[in-house]
Design a protein around this nucleic acid. Sequence first.
DNA 1: GCAAAAGTGTTGTACGTACACCCATGG
DNA 2: CCATGGGTGTACGTACAACACTTTTGC
Lengths: 227, 227
Amino acid sequence: MSDHAIIGTVSIDCVIFGFRDDQLQLLLVKHADGIGKGNWGLPGGWIWESEGLDDAAYRILKELTGIREIFLEQLGAFGDVDRYPARRVITVAYFALVNPQEYELIPGFTAAEASWFPIDQLPGVLYDHSKIINAAKEHLRQKVRHEPIGFNLLPEEFTLLDIQKLYEALLQTQLDKSNFRRKIKRMNLLVKSEKKQSDVPHRAAQLYSFDRTIYENHRKNGFSFML
Amino acid sequence: MSDHAIIGTVSIDCVIFGFRDDQLQLLLVKHADGIGKGNWGLPGGWIWESEGLDDAAYRILKELTGIREIFLEQLGAFGDVDRYPARRVITVAYFALVNPQEYELIPGFTAAEASWFPIDQLPGVLYDHSKIINAAKEHLRQKVRHEPIGFNLLPEEFTLLDIQKLYEALLQTQLDKSNFRRKIKRMNLLVKSEKKQSDVPHRAAQLYSFDRTIYENHRKNGFSFML
DNA sequence: GCAAAAGTGTTGTACGTACACCCATGG
DNA sequence: CCATGGGTGTACGTACAACACTTTTGC
């Protein structure tokens, strides 16, 4: 059996979130061949016999978009009997968080085009992909309140207002500046950068970065991230 | 193709939690045939071509244990290359909450025996089942703090101390009686029963039941269960 | 000086925590 | 009358929400 023999009954699909222009956005690809040719859909593909599920998701993501080394986590399996038109295919959905500025999108072999869409202005998508996307949105909104995964959507360094805008978009609410700042600072998860903003038409803000090490330490001592 | 043709590359496994003797317990079956014959493992089976994933999970659970109409939810797919000895098989794990008192365990065709085990005294289990069990435990402990799913582990009617004992076991902590009562009562999710406890060697406690309708109403208005 | 965003301070309320206490019942 | 669990009350601190306010910078 070849190393790249595929399992024809199980596929991978990736829901990739990004944050641009104070908006939550989603990465879709236009399929270049196969049944879905010419339509927008989630980046996806087949699993090799020789690789685990997570490995397959990373590989497919890289092949289709050029994105690598990001936050990627399994969302679950979707297996309605008629979800795929040609035959019975079960798909394992993954959900990823990216800072779009870090990546030049490079559509791969099977993707004619790759593009970001604001989450509330998506085009029609293939198969049961809108069902998967909705599950991913819900998962993200839940998870972001209990774990500091939101930082994966931001650049390495960011201002406090950046985070606030991010959380306002994710939680779809308005937050009080003063209260938000105190809350996030009290958690002691951020480290001050040497730098401040530059080239802004107003007072330059302090830059911060998220320290994963600190977070892991806190977590071991029973710390719980909230909001 | 027969209605009951199976998909040979994808299986279902169920992690079933129950609460007995103030302890979180897990239901395992002793496999009666197949590769795992004679060993304890999660109740599991193959998916029919003609049924969805959730349907398969319900069916398999009923076939192997007699349990039906319970809280059942997908946990995720497990697909390490070598997780199953004979060939590449991906399994979709489900996670269920049961009140053990409601069910007489009825081992089915392929299960020689079905039995509850305290969560910290499990026997050795097949394949990657201990990995799946750990994921399920973690999922339960997270979820139980944000959604009132714990009630699925209790009888229809219960005392406030029953819930407290349940949460103490789930969260592995001690809770203050007075504070816990106020907190849970303030949520207005419980309705007083007509009855009180009987046959207890001390003052009889008020019985309550969880009202799912009330919960759904609250949730629509942005209510969030916490503890 | 104006606009725009950075950043600080104040105050009332609501909730969590800790702990003390009384009540009812069976043995 | 005592052990056991049921059930209530109070006092204190702290976190959160709402809102007002000052500071820095570019145009």
